[in-house]
């Protein structure tokens, strides 16, 4: 199994997290996303015509899109079926719903980070405002979950929904987005970083 990886990418970090959580042996192929833009090279476009990372190569097939890779890995390699809870349709529905939400976080919070860290030319005020709108929704949701005794986005166990939402929320400070106003998100981040086999990525501020 091979992960096309960029060390500063939150979307690649999602896959690294799940590979570690599931203790799956794999190799990494470092992609020069910045400054080399290797993901837009002809060679890489053969692997993913969208020109995006991460890509996972497994059993001769290429899987693209961070959320799709999470679903694939959890479905295939998690014998407990908790990360992608196929045996509980209502929980599965909630997980899928928050996977879509994670994509919106990428297009806002991650965009602000690309602007601030790597100098991408985009409307950073709009990106930050969009991120704050989503974080308010996530913070309310996590607070409600806590009131019902649930520590995680979709229920009592961490799922791929938590992994999909975690990186660009936890890295928001890199893009000038303060998490100060989101106490339930801060508590959720603390729980997340204490998961077994969790590995930190630079830019993540642990609130303690």
């Amino acid at each position: 199994m091979k992960l096309y990886d960029y060390v500063l990418s939150g979307n690649c970090y999602k896959i690294r997290l799940l590979l570690d959580f599931l203790e799956l042996s794999h190799e990494k192929r470092a992609v020069d996303f910045f400054p080399g833009r290797e993901h837009k090279s002809d060679e890489f476009l053969q692997i993913n015509p969208l020109g995006q990372i991460p890509v996972l190569e497994d059993d001769g097939a290429y899987i693209r899109d961070a959320q799709a890779i999470l679903v694939y890995l959890a479905s295939r390699y998690d014998p407990t079926a908790t990360w992608w809870p196929v045996n509980d349709p209502s929980e599965l529905g909630r997980v899928a719903q928050w996977l879509a939400f994670a994509d919106s976080i990428t297009s806002t919070a991650s965009a602000a980070r690309l602007h601030d860290v790597l100098g991408y030319d985009l409307d950073v005020a709009q990106a930050r405002a969009g991120a704050h709108r989503l974080f308010r929704i996530l913070d309310d949701h996590l607070a409600n979950q806590e009131l019902q005794g649930f520590n995680w986005i979709a229920g009592s166990n961490p799922t791929v929904a938590d992994i999909a939402c975690f990186p660009y929320v936890a890295l928001a400070g890199d893009g000038g987005i303060e998490l100060f106003y989101y106490p339930a998100i801060q508590r959720w981040i603390r729980r997340f970083v204490n998961l077994p086999r969790f590995k930190l990525m630079p830019g993540i501020n642990i609130f303690d």
Binding site: Y6, V7, L8, A30, F34, V117, G173, D174, P202, G203, N205
Partner: peptide, 12 residues
């Protein structure tokens, strides 16, 4: 990747 990882730790 090694270099960028180190520098992003400093950046925060």
């Amino acid at each position: 990747h090694f270099q960028q990882n180190i520098f992003l730790q400093d950046r925060m």
